[in-house]
């Protein structure tokens, strides 16, 4: 078990294994997102109340899922880095933060645009929207912290701590629609009950969510490999790599 974890934590081993995994996740992401987009935009039936504006759900919900999952991943990676000093966890955490911020922005923007025809307003200081805005600022904080230290190790530790503390916001986002009275509708998917929408509506949503997750994994693998080139550039195996890859 420990041998495996340390192998996984070795940048050289990670660089090799991620090269093999990465293409599969890119292909899966492309296929799922293309199929989900075509299905969601052109084939899913219009909502009987919201008309075609409901099609925003197919980018809004996957982006909101990723926004939260990426922050949790960052917090877990930060914990692994702080406790076991596994550098690769910190590299991955650093590389996923910008995508998390981008996805939080997409969730907020698509929600605002969706709110205009549906609620008659693009913004409300309600619990779900406000906690998502706080998530965006937490991402900015994590990214800024990494740039604010001259020592890489201090930057990594500060960013890890902020991710581990900030993750408190995630359950607040999740339960905000239950705890407070909000404009935002409750969760679309639940583990315990069937979706309220018909299959032709939720199937493309599920496909899009899976596609976004594959995209996140593929991008994180790719960028973590780049980060290895950046941080380990004085290691012999990285230098030998420079000769091979054209």
């Amino acid at each position: 078990m420990w041998a495996f974890i340390h192998k996984l934590g070795s940048p050289k081993w990670f660089y090799a294994i991620s090269a093999r995994l990465q293409p599969w996740f890119w292909v899966a992401a492309a296929v799922l997102i293309l199929v989900g987009s075509a299905w969601g935009l052109a084939f899913a039936p219009a909502d009987y109340q919201q008309g075609n504006s409901f099609r925003i759900i197919y980018v809004h919900v996957p982006a909101a899922f990723l926004a939260q999952s990426i922050f949790v991943s960052m917090a877990v990676a930060g914990f692994i880095f702080m406790v076991w000093k596994i550098k690769i966890a910190d590299m991955a955490a650093a590389m996923m933060a910008p995508l998390g911020a981008a996805m939080t922005f997409v969730a907020l923007f698509s929600g605002a645009v969706w709110g205009v025809p549906t609620w008659g307003t693009w913004w409300m200081w309600d619990a779900r929207l406000t906690s998502m805005l706080i998530l965006l600022f937490l991402y900015f904080g994590v990214i800024a912290l990494r740039g604010a230290f001259s020592s890489r190790d201090s930057a990594s530790r500060a960013a890890s701590v902020l991710a581990m503390v900030g993750v408190i916001n995630i359950p607040i986002i999740k339960y905000s629609v239950d705890w407070w009275y909000t404009l935002h509708q409750p969760a679309t998917f639940s583990v315990t009950s069937r979706p309220a929408m018909p299959m032709e509506m939720w199937a493309p949503l599920l496909i899009m969510v899976l596609g976004f997750y594959c995209f996140f994994i593929a991008l994180t693998l790719m960028r973590t490999r780049s980060e290895i080139l950046r941080r380990e550039s004085s290691k012999r195996w990285v230098r030998e790599l420079a000769g091979e890859v054209s």
Partner: peptide, 26 residues
């Protein structure tokens, strides 16, 4: 989009641009 084109395409467009931009940057 039944009169909702502006909203639907704005949301989808921004999403597509950001995903594409992120890939190109990587």
């Amino acid at each position: 989009m039944g009169g909702h084109g502006v909203y639907v395409w704005a949301a989808w467009g921004v999403t597509a641009l950001l995903l594409l931009g992120v890939v190109l940057h990587a």
